[in-house]
């Protein structure tokens, strides 16, 4: 069975190799084509060109502005300082909500790992609240905390808390018995045991949880800002999009959306990937399970 599957795998890889290195030999173009980022950059340029072509043909900037107009709007918004200020506002709120959410999640997961009742509580709460989209709590949040950052932070905490607590609890429970015994052997207990043994040992799962939590928080933040950035004088990026739509500055709406995408990518690749390389990969603890969870959250 096992030999069969490896044999198939090797044949498949063999075919790919043949297609990847055409009869022309390893020319510079072929070598470039073998690099993933070159192929993706090529596709991206193609998509942007299609957009430009379609928008120009449509000639209705109120519906679909051209790519170049969007780019121009983005550059203008950055230059005028309007967009950077919005980004700062968004991040302040985001980090507050994310920070509180992660902290609560760690406490909850810790309690769930140490006590049976805590584990029941976590299971009950996550099964109840995880299916509830954070944005659905917005009306209630408005009622409780009024128009303002308090409401957004409340919704963000809800978005972050449950998925992070679940990952953290999974990670803590999966810490192997030998490492636990080693920790206790050297006299660790309580908070020190958690800080020195449990958290680093569960770090691969924790990082996956933090990633998922970030993805949920970012989407929730933009959605919440779209709904009621209206009230607060200095709105975030969501409010920037909403405001420009009201003023029919459609290229700026597109620019806002591109900003949301760019920031999302930047945080994933610059921050989380870097943390992963500096920790889990360096320690040889990278689990293949992490990737799957990440894909599911992005869907």
């Amino acid at each position: 069975m096992k030999t069969d599957s490896t044999a198939v795998g090797m044949t498949v890889r063999g075919t790919v190799m043949h297609e990847g290195s055409p009869s022309t030999g390893p020319g510079i173009l072929a070598q470039l084509w073998d690099k993933g980022w070159v192929r993706r950059a090529g596709l991206l340029i193609l998509l942007c060109a299609l957009w430009e072509w379609y928008a120009t043909r449509l000639a209705n900037p109120l519906m679909v502005p051209t790519f170049s107009a969007t780019l121009q709007a983005l550059v203008d918004a950055v230059r005028s300082g309007g967009l950077p200020a919005r980004i700062v506002t968004s991040f302040k709120i985001l980090l507050t909500g994310y920070g509180i959410g992660v902290l609560l999640a760690l406490i909850l997961a810790m309690a769930a790992t140490m006590t049976r009742l805590g584990s029941d509580l976590l299971e009950l709460c996550t099964s109840m609240f995880n299916p509830l989209p954070a944005i659905a709590l917005l009306p209630l949040a408005l009622l409780w905390f009024g128009l303002g950052n308090g409401s957004i932070i409340f919704v963000l905490i809800h978005a972050v808390l449950w998925p992070v607590a679940l990952s953290a609890h999974g990670g803590f429970s999966a810490v192997n018995g030998t490492i636990r015994m080693v920790g206790r052997n050297y006299g660790l207990s309580g908070i020190r045991y958690a800080a020195v043994i449990l958290i680093p040992a569960a770090f691969p799962s924790l990082l996956t949880g933090l990633r998922n939590g970030w993805a949920f928080a970012w989407r929730t933040l933009i959605a919440a800002e779209l709904v009621f950035g209206v009230s607060s004088g200095s709105g975030g990026i969501g409010w920037f999009i909403y405001e420009n739509k009201q003023q029919l500055e459609i290229p700026s709406v597109f620019a806002g959306l591109i900003t949301v995408i760019l920031i999302g990518i930047a945080v994933e690749n610059l921050i989380f990937d870097r943390i992963e390389r500096a920790t889990v990969v360096k320690w040889g603890m990278k689990s293949s399970g992490g990737r799957n969870v990440k894909i599911r959250s992005a869907a």
Partner: peptide, 29 residues
Amino acid sequence: GPGPDRVMVFQEFDQLLPWKTVRENVAFG
């Protein structure tokens, strides 16, 4: 209870803390 006056060496290779270097692992105790 467990205590550092009786140190165990286990069969499992994962008794070392993977996030610490050899020196940090030894100093850890």
